[in-house]
Design a protein around this nucleic acid. Structure first.
Lengths: 344, 344
DNA sequence: CTGAAAGCGCTTACAG
DNA sequence: CTGAAAGCGCTTACAG
């Protein structure tokens, strides 16, 4: 018997001398198949390098065994580069999917484009993971629409009250609090904060709230003039720090709302002839790989990307199963390095 | 008429008062549909938020409209982290796929695991893009098997003669040559090379050949004792550089076969109290984002990841169309920064 | 320009 | 334990 093209279950059935449904049962591990028959079928399938056609089985089972990962970023800097923090997340999400026998579709998207619940609507994916930092007010109504359409999705971000859908995020408040307390412990008193501190950027806002809380608890004033808006890019952090320096306000420490912002600020400080940490202690948030490699190495708040990825996948899968799912906040960890220590 | 669950083309047919095949034709833009009828159908489809079921259409069309991206790395450091160079590649591949209406499945894989032509065998993807650096001798036979199975795939890597399948890679020889020539221009004479220089790692081997060629052309000896093996990780570069320093061999420049290696070497040099570039000029290869952020900023060879991603996708699509496809080498660009200049 | 029919390759009640 | 039958939702010759 010669088979042209890929083998099908029918081909195997002929070769094994059974009906096609029996092949399907054997392959799926149904208990109602004679062990010898099953062996024969499995052997032949292996020999022919047979793989179940996923299009056919997904169509029949009404389940794709696939999740979709959507990265979105504000006015994405034209090309490729997404926040390095998400690269680690991609790794853990990919592995978590693989562990559970799911495949992962990956897509990038401008925030401006319409979101594609398409993946799920077209039955290519059973659910969607949303990753990205952007203006929350703009994305909120889109999230709302996804909920209304009954799309299964989870997102990484601040887990706020009355928010559309399920959010998994780290404890931004605690992280902001802890690293600010660390700076205070180092003797810093005039601590600048670079990053948007508004409801448009809830993660940053939470970090900023933690910063204010830590200061207030010690009776140190959070000077509004020491807060500067920035989105999470090196360039934005650089520019905000330049503006801060130009303002003439004095500060002995700087908290970048993300590592990228802090690294941009580091560049601005260096250009201004200021030493880190001797003149200005510097800290960030995220613990991207770069944080450990810049010089001086950057103190920061570590988010547990491994757990994050696992949770995102698990919760999404639970949602798809029709379970009731709640958002969750993940603990953070202070990572002290050179940029906030030594010589103060 | 109430529709439970997702709308199908049959639902639309009923609502539009036509047969289901007519709906299919209208949706696919067939010219043999009455314009008015088409309009009605499209409107109803929009209202119902209808999306063609990809499982059904892929099954019928025998084409998934999906490519698979497989990252593989040697003994992957347990978790997540892939070479940052590939992150940029992921970006351009994702975009190139989207531009051509293809979706992208992403998967990580240990080199040790069996490669999954599964994606294609199960008809989930029409072809595979392979990304990763590892021992070429180990992967070669797997590539050979993919070719024999008729799997459609392209890989990023050295485009060598008589190699299984289609490879797209940058001009490693030229890059190695140019950056070495640059070091020679700076007055360096004892230039160390860190990175495997064997056929197990063809990209590195090519870079090393370029390095030797540039030296030879100037009548400078490539001292074997100044070459140290390393794979493309920061840690490996660090250790190799430490070993080199311990050997007592003198050198006034160091060429890391990848940026990660160079950055690891930078750490070792710093710990040894050597200044870059004053005591040792340092260069890498890849131009990962980190290269511009470390201090001093790292001179390196830039690979055009945007073009690379486009080519990988285009060539794979051509292969799938049954066209004859050749490998290709992409030009590189020298990027001179602080680590190889100033003060020499 | 449109419909009735066949079929892509599976999975699962249903009957035996 | 096994087979004949139906059906998942499309697409495309074939007839008209």
């Amino acid at each position: 018997m010669t088979i042209r093209g890929k083998a099908t279950s029918l081909d195997i059935a002929h070769l094994a001398g059974v009906s096609q449904p029996t092949v399907s049962r054997a392959l799926r591990g149904s208990p109602m198949v004679n062990p010898e028959t099953r062996e024969r079928i499995l052997r032949i399938a292996r020999e022919l390098n047979y793989k179940v056609d996923k299009n056919a089985s997904s169509l029949r089972l009404r389940n794709a065994g696939t999740l979709a990962l959507l990265f979105f970023e504000d006015p994405t800097n034209d090309d490729s580069l997404i926040n390095p923090f998400f690269h680690a997340m991609l790794g853990s999400i990919t592995r978590a999917c693989a562990l559970r026998g799911n495949d992962l579709l990956v897509s990038f998207q401008q925030l401006s484009t319409d979101w594609q619940a398409d993946y799920e609507d077209s039955n290519k994916a059973d659910g969607i993971i949303l990753l990205g930092y952007g203006d929350y007010h703009e994305s909120r109504e889109r999230l709302q629409r996804l909920v209304e359409q009954g799309t299964h999705f989870v997102r990484w971000g601040a887990a706020l009250p009355d928010q559309p859908g399920v959010s998994i995020g780290c404890d931004n408040f605690q992280g902001g609090h802890d690293i600010t307390a660390h700076l205070l412990d180092q003797g810093c008193r005039r601590i600048a904060f670079i990053g948007h501190a508004s409801s448009h950027y809830p993660e940053f806002e939470e970090r900023h709230r933690g910063y204010v809380a830590a200061m207030t608890a010690r009776g140190v004033a959070a000077v509004p003039a020491l807060q500067r808006d920035a989105i999470t890019t090196e360039q934005s952090g650089y520019e905000a720090c330049l503006a801060l320096l130009a303002s003439g306000e004095k500060f002995d420490a700087l908290f970048g709302a993300s590592d990228l912002i802090a690294i941009g600020a580091m560049r601005a400080l260096r250009e201004a002839g200021l030493r880190v940490p001797q003149d200005v202690a510097l800290v960030g948030f995220d613990d991207i790989p770069l944080a450990a490699s810049v010089s001086p190495t950057l103190s920061t708040v570590q988010q547990d990307t491994k757990q994050a990825g696992q949770l995102l996948v698990e919760k999404l899968l639970a949602l798809i199963q029709g379970e009731k799912v709640e958002g969750q906040t993940i603990p953070v960890k202070l990572v002290v390095r050179e940029s906030s220590l030594a010589g103060r």
